[in-house]
Design a protein around this nucleic acid. Structure first.
Length: 329
DNA sequence: AAGAATCCCAACCGCAAGTTG
DNA sequence: GCAACTTGCGGTTGGGATTCT
C-alpha cells in the first residue's frame, strides 16, 4: 500500500483557502463532478493537492452542509452513537444529515468530551470514572451532605422527611455510580480498583457495617463473573435496582436510535417511597441539564413525574441544589 | 487598554483499506 | 500475488477569535 505524495511537493499551496479558490473548486465540481481528486486541481486550475481539494469540498463547500450550532437533539444523538461506535466520526456523521465527520469530531473534542469529564464520566466508556480525583466532587458533596443531616435538625417533620429522602436518593445515586463502575471494572482482570469501593462507601457513610460485609464479599472473582455486571449486585442489595442494558439492543433507524433512553427505565409506574433514580447503564442524561459548574451533579440522572412518567430531570433539582450550595457557601 | 489565556475549528498529516493494472 | 495509486478516516495542530485578568 503506497502513500499519496504530500502536498508540500511541487510547491503546492497549503493553508486557508481563498474565496477565489473556493469559487474555482465549486464551479468545477458543479460542472464536472469531482472525478479523480488527484487530477482535479490541475483541471480546475488550482495549485492545491487533490487531498486538500477533497477536504475543502467535503467539509466546507458542499451545498448540503448544515452550518451553525449543534441542536440538543444532535448533541444527544452524537452521545448515543459515540457510546456505541466510539470515535467512528464518519459513521456518526451518517446519522446526522448535513454534518461532517470533521465537524462532529471537533464538537466532540471541544464540548462533549469536556462536559463528560466535568461530570465525572469517562468520555470513552461513557461510564462514571473511578479514579479518586474524578470522584472527588461527589465524595465531597456527599460527605458534606451527611454532615448537614447529622448536625442540623430540620425545622419540622415534613421538611425533614423530604430532605432525608433527598439524601437517601443522593446516596443511592452515588452508590449506583460506584456499582456501575465496579461492573465495568469487573470485566478487567487486571483491575484492582474494585477493592477500594467498599472502603469509599464506608467512609462516606453510604453503607452500614453489615452492608459493608456483604459488599466486601462481592470482590470474589466467582461473583464478579456475571455476564452483565448485574448479578453480583441485585441479590445482595435489594434496595438497589440496576436497570437492564437495553441501549445496545436498540437498532438505529432513520438516523437515530429508537430508544431515547436517557431516562431511567425502571421508574415508570412505580410508586415506592424511595424511587430508584438511576442512569440507564450505557446512556447518559441530557448534558443540557448539567451546567459544567454543577460538579455535584456528576452522578445525577432522570426522575419521574407525578404520573410515573419518565422525565429528564437531574436528581439534584435546582431548588435542592441551590439549598445545598447555600448551606455551604 | 493590553497582554495572557483559552476556545474553537479549518486544515493538515499519516495510516490503512480499497482499487487498478 | 504484488506494487502503485486513490480514497477515506481519525488524530493533531496552527492560528484567529474570544474571554479573562
Amino acid at each position: 500500500m503506497g502513500r499519496s505524495p504530500c502536498c508540500d511537493e511541487n510547491g503546492l499551496k497549503k493553508g486557508p483557502w481563498t474565496t477565489e479558490e473556493d469559487q474555482k473548486l465549486t464551479e468545477y465540481i458543479v460542472k464536472n463532478g469531482h472525478g479523480s481528486w488527484r487530477a482535479l486541481p490541475k483541471l480546475a486550475g488550482l495549485n492545491r493537492c487533490g487531498k486538500s481539494c477533497r477536504l475543502r469540498w467535503t467539509n466546507y463547500l458542499r451545498s448540503d452542509i448544515k452550518r451553525g450550532k449543534f441542536t440538543p437533539e444532535e448533541e444527544q444523538t452524537i452521545l448515543q452513537l459515540h457510546s456505541v461506535l466510539g470515535n467512528k466520526w464518519s459513521a456518526i456523521a451518517k446519522h446526522l444529515p448535513g454534518r461532517t465527520d470533521n465537524e462532529i469530531k471537533n464538537f466532540w473534542n471541544t464540548h462533549l468530551k469536556k462536559k463528560l469529564i466535568q461530570m465525572g464520566f469517562d468520555p470513552m466508556t461513557h461510564r462514571p470514572r473511578t479514579d479518586f480525583f474524578a470522584a472527588l466532587p461527589q465524595l465531597i458533596a456527599l460527605a458534606n451532605l451527611r454532615q448537614l443531616v447529622e448536625q442540623r435538625p430540620w425545622e419540622d417533620n415534613t421538611s425533614s422527611q423530604v430532605q432525608a429522602d433527598a439524601v437517601q436518593a443522593a446516596k443511592l445515586e452515588y452508590l449506583q455510580c460506584l456499582l456501575q463502575s465496579a461492573a465495568a471494572i469487573a470485566t478487567s482482570p487486571s483491575s484492582s480498583s474494585i477493592n477500594t469501593i467498599p472502603t469509599d462507601l464506608e467512609q462516606i457513610g453510604l453503607l452500614s457495617p453489615s452492608q459493608m460485609s456483604s459488599l466486601s464479599s462481592l470482590s470474589s472473582p466467582r461473583i464478579l463473573e456475571g455476564t452483565n455486571g448485574q448479578d453480583f449486585i441485585t441479590g445482595q442489595l435489594p434496595d438497589i435496582q440496576i436497570p437492564s442494558s437495553s441501549f445496545f439492543e436498540q437498532p438505529i433507524i432513520n438516523g437515530s436510535t429508537q430508544n431515547s433512553d436517557y431516562t431511567a427505565n425502571n421508574c415508570a409506574g412505580e410508586n415506592s417511597a424511595h424511587k430508584p433514580l438511576f442512569l440507564s447503564e450505557n446512556s447518559l442524561p441530557p448534558l443540557a441539564d448539567f451546567p459544567i459548574s454543577n460538579l455535584g451533579d456528576a452522578c445525577s440522572t432522570s426522575s419521574c413525574d407525578a404520573d410515573g412518567n419518565s422525565a429528564q430531570l437531574p436528581i439534584w433539582s435546582e431548588s435542592f441544589y441551590d439549598q445545598f450550595m447555600s448551606e455551604f457557601a
